[in-house]
């Protein structure tokens, strides 16, 4: 419990970090949003359609736009593909920077400018985090296979996915802490440690997941309650939505913080090096025993 409270406290104190993660999310998503916004405004801005959308929106509109505005549909498809690539790159960059700077911040004040340090650490760990990410995606996809057997498959899939995600976080902590290379080896050698402490890790992660779910649930409630049929209500909804993203960023940092504390607490102590006993060689300078 102490670790959970500490991690929440630490996450909220690293305000620069979670504002940065939130800002990077916004930055990565903005080009696609902006392109679609402009294209729709260009095509439909002079019609009654935006006014109708303030009152209601249905699937028919989406489909008619897709059929009758083929260039918009094409642009959206390409934009989604490009955004997917950007998302992966930004995710790796953010993750590498966050784990890196978190580690440094937890040791004490960081010298130099925060953003410069963040970018430096992102660059340092980018390749390694990318490779871990590939392993995670592959393993998660494999872990989801039991779902093909129906909802009963979730009994296997959910714990497996949880384990993979926890294992990935601990691997990242190890990599940043030790500056190690050889990601594949680390990804798999971390598993015994995580397995040994799986109950504790899952318990702690569950607290974060529940907190995130509560946040999302609250958003859904507000979303159902508020019909943004005017500019001021649209603005209010945007504030609520971005607050949730900010909250989600904070929670990700809290999870990293918690995982690091837990790792520090439970990590195997370094095996002390055995003292090397140098036996005397046949040194003629030594006096012969009497």
């Amino acid at each position: 419990m102490n670790i959970i409270l500490k991690s929440f406290k630490q996450a909220f104190s690293f305000y620069k970090l979670y504002f940065l993660v939130w800002f990077l999310s916004l930055l990565a998503a903005w080009p696609l949003f902006s392109a679609i916004q402009n294209a729709l405004a260009g095509n439909l801005g002079m019609t009654n359609v935006p006014g109708e959308w303030l009152q209601n929106f249905n699937l028919g509109y989406l489909f008619e736009i897709a059929v009758n505005q083929p260039s918009l549909a094409w642009m959206t498809t390409q934009g989604v593909r490009a955004t997917a690539i950007v998302f992966v790159l930004v995710a790796v960059l953010t993750s590498a920077g966050t784990f890196g700077i978190f580690r440094e911040l937890s040791k004490g004040p960081v010298d130099g400018r925060f953003l410069a340090n963040f970018l430096r650490l992102s660059g340092t760990f980018f390749g390694r985090f990318f490779r871990i990410g590939l392993w995670v995606v592959t393993c998660v996809l494999l872990a989801l296979l039991p779902l093909m057997a129906g909802s009963i498959g979730a009994i296997i899939a959910v714990p497996l996915v949880s384990f993979i995600l926890i294992n990935a976080d601990v691997t990242r902590i190890r990599v940043v802490e030790n500056g190690e290379k050889g990601m594949t080896r680390h990804f798999f050698t971390t598993m015994p440690f995580v397995l040994r402490n799986l109950g504790v890790f899952i318990g702690y992660y569950l607290v974060s997941v529940v907190t995130i779910a509560l946040g999302l649930g609250l958003y859904r409630l507000l979303d159902n309650f508020i019909t943004p049929a005017s500019v001021s209500l649209i603005f209010l909804m945007v504030m609520i939505q971005q607050s949730l993203i900010l909250f989600r960023s904070t929670m990700r940092i809290q999870i990293i913080s918690m995982a690091t504390m837990l790792y520090d607490k439970r990590k195997p102590l370094p095996v002390p090096e055995e003292p090397v006993i140098q036996l005397p060689t046949n040194d003629s300078t030594l006096p012969n025993p009497a």
């Binding site: 998503a29 949003f33 005017s230 649209i234």
Partner: peptide, 15 residues
Amino acid sequence: AQSAGISRYTLRFLF
């Protein structure tokens, strides 16, 4: 031109 209705949904998309 009017675009509030468009923004309502594109901003949700952004979110």
